[in-house]
């Protein structure tokens, strides 16, 4: 077992041990969204001609929960370790900055996938789902989780206090995920807001993810993949540069 696999194992074990908060709670939240929104909007909104609103909503909620929890995993683990000081246990061993990044991001993906699967299982009862193109589902789930996991690493390293992390979460992550077409198709927005949505990378994650279920989406899944993969590349480069320089961790 290498330092990398141990760190990955420890990060997974960390959220699994408190699974009630880290898995069950977000699944419940997603179910509440589904109950309320589908109840209010089911009869009024029809997204694609063949897809009911509830069916449309389910993949969006799955992806939103996956992304938010991927972010929460790496960011909260890092800030807790920094504030309590036990981050030294990871900084003292011969673990490279690349392994450090890989372990935190992979654990974030795992948490995202576990929560996403939980939401899917819990909400799929309410609407018939088909998996038209399951490979897209998997690809967007993993890359999306990696993007938010990287953002979580950045936020966790940058923030010195819990309220700074909360600000990052409330003013960046929440708006990005809520205004991404989870609850609506952006085609139902006025043209200006449609344009704005195209600058939100989370929109492409959700749109591409949904394509895997319905074979329909607002933009081509290839375009979404390109945007999301570029985001991941940029964020990975930024995070690795931060980690390599030892920013806030080694000084």
């Amino acid at each position: 077992m290498s330092g990398f696999t141990t760190l990955l194992y420890k990060e997974v074990l960390r959220f699994w041990k408190v699974g009630f908060q880290t898995v069950a709670a977000p699944v419940l939240t997603a179910m509440l969204y589904l109950l309320i929104f589908s109840h209010v909007l089911e009869s009024r909104v029809r997204v694609y001609d063949t897809v009911s609103y509830t069916a449309f909503l389910v993949p969006g909620l799955v992806m939103m929960s996956l992304l938010q929890n991927a972010f929460a995993n790496s960011s909260s683990s890092l800030i807790q370790s920094k504030v309590t000081g036990n981050i030294v246990f990871v900084l003292l061993p011969p673990i490279s900055y690349r392994e450090f990044y890989g372990a935190y991001v992979l654990a974030a993906i795992v948490r995202g996938l576990v929560v996403g699967a939980g939401v899917l299982i819990a909400t799929a009862w309410f609407a018939p789902l088909n998996f038209e193109q399951p490979l897209w589902v998997v690809v967007f789930a993993i890359i999306g989780g990696a993007v938010l996991g990287s953002l979580g690493v950045i936020a966790g390293i940058w923030a010195d206090k819990f309220d700074q992390l909360a600000a990052f979460q409330n003013f960046l992550i929440m708006p990005l995920t809520f205004l991404s077409g989870v609850f609506y198709s952006i085609h139902s927005l006025p043209p200006f807001w449609q344009q704005v949505s195209h600058f939100n990378p989370v929109f492409y994650m959700i749109d591409g993810f949904r394509y895997g279920f319905f074979g329909r989406s607002d933009v081509s899944p290839w375009q979404s993949l390109a945007v999301v993969a570029c985001c991941l590349g940029l964020l990975a480069a930024l995070t690795l540069t931060m980690l390599k320089s030892g920013y806030k961790l080694r000084n």
Binding site: M1, S2, G3, T6, Y9, F89, P93, P94
Partner: peptide, 11 residues
């Protein structure tokens, strides 16, 4: 055990 693992020492 985790600390040992960080140093690459397998169980």
């Amino acid at each position: 055990q985790i600390q040992a693992g960080y140093f690459g020492i397998a169980k």
